[in-house]
Amino acid sequence: MSRVLVLDKEQTRGGLDPGRVLDAVAAALVALSRGEVSAPPRIAAVAPAGLLGAMPAYVPGLGLAAKLVSVFATPGASGRSSHRGLVALFDHTDGRPLALLDAEPITAVRTAASATLSLRALAPDARRVAVIGTGVQASAQVALLAALHPALPVTVGARDGGRARALAATHPDASAASIEQAVRGANAVFCCTGATTPVFPRGWLGEGAHVSSVGGSHGHELDRDVIIDGTLFAEWPGAAAAAPPAGAYELQDVDPQRVTLLGAVLDGRHPGRVDRGGLTVFKSTGHGALDVAAASVVHAWARDQGVGTAVDL
């Protein structure tokens, strides 16, 4: 029998310190790029209205964990979806279960962290960014930018102006606009939607733009010409080499040799952006290694602060 620490949603969210999560996710991305992570491609059981994915991973120095997450479209709300589930953290030396955490805040924050790292690595001189979407992932992205880059102006672009204004109000220097206005005025664009068709055309992007796409769990979030024109980056090789739901819809007919791993840029083995006027694209599929990273941060915080309920399993 093991004593397992159980944290609810608010407790899990409370342990996701932005700086510590960013550092842990960076370490996981570097480990992925070096081939040091043990993780099978994500699998999923598909139900009529969504899917249930399984994502186990071991990351040296961070830990061993598995996530079960459901991704279901929001009824009556095109372009929005919910991600719910659990992250189970295990002792990597003897296999004991250590903690059960809420997957929703972990998924949102670790995904926002990887997108923010792509901004830092590929568009460090960006003067204005756009966040496209108003759901859970867009909210997490705006919150992380507010915590880590509060002086960087943000435009929230969405079809629903009221929701865009409400999200913009959570950031110290943000405004709301249409999707077109947000994209055309930005040096970097964060796509955080549940869209199944491209959110905007290539022509809306300015010279030297950077695009981070973390949505598209059910289809293409990015325009085909964005993929054709862009220098491509991803978390892991399977983003292009594996079929959905493990790989990205947008990268299925892309030569994997075109895709550079973001971790290789973060640790200096790849220069990242080589053409200041070119388009860079980070296409995120999510990866279990990032869940391990965020879960390790939450677990360490919970133990230090005495947070959570210990149960016998």
Rank of each mutant, 00 (worst) to 15 (best):
V21E: 04
V129H: 02
D160Y: 08
D255F: 08
H220F: 13
A66G: 12
R110Q: 04
P237N: 11
G157W: 03
S38R: 12
A289S: 13
A108I: 05
L16K: 01
Y58Q: 09
P124Q: 07
H287N: 04
H83P: 00
P256S: 09
G230D: 06
G14S: 14
A65I: 11
A242P: 01
T170G: 08
C192P: 02
R20S: 13
L7C: 10
T116V: 08
A174D: 05
V129Y: 00
A146Y: 05
D91K: 08
G135L: 02
R96V: 12
H270V: 06
A242C: 15
M1D: 14
D229P: 07
D275C: 11
A39M: 12
A182R: 03
A177F: 06
V142K: 00
G230L: 06
R84Y: 12
S296I: 09
L145D: 00
D94Q: 11
A126Y: 06
G157V: 01
Q181H: 13
A166L: 12
A27M: 08
T12Y: 06
L262E: 00
L5C: 05
T116M: 03
W236L: 05
T116L: 08
T74M: 09
G238P: 04
E104L: 10
G288V: 06
R84G: 04
A45I: 15
A112K: 04
L89K: 04
I228C: 11
V25I: 08
G50L: 03
D225N: 13
L262C: 06
Q181S: 15
V298N: 02
A143I: 14
G162A: 14
H220M: 12
T155A: 14
L148N: 02
P18G: 12
R224H: 15
P271L: 10
R96H: 13
E250A: 09
V183P: 00
A186Q: 01
L279H: 05
S70I: 08
T280R: 02
P172L: 08
A310E: 15
G185K: 02
A289I: 12
A174T: 07
L290A: 05
R276D: 13
E235L: 06
V265L: 00
L222V: 15
G53D: 01
R163I: 10
G53V: 09
A47V: 12
H287R: 06
T111E: 03
T12G: 04
T260V: 14
L62H: 03
A168V: 05
S212R: 03
G162C: 11
L16P: 07
L148W: 01
L52A: 14
P198F: 05
S114Q: 00
V307A: 06
A44W: 01
V307N: 01
R34H: 11
H299V: 15
A103S: 09
E10W: 13
V71T: 08
G277R: 13
E250T: 07
H220C: 11
A73N: 10
V311P: 07
V154E: 03
L62C: 08
S38V: 15
H299A: 15
T197M: 07
H92S: 15
R13D: 13
A121R: 05
D17W: 09
V183C: 03
A47I: 06
S139H: 13
V21M: 04
G50P: 04
Q137N: 06
G85P: 01
R163M: 10
A166Q: 10
A242S: 14
T285D: 02
D91N: 13
L86R: 10
A113Y: 02
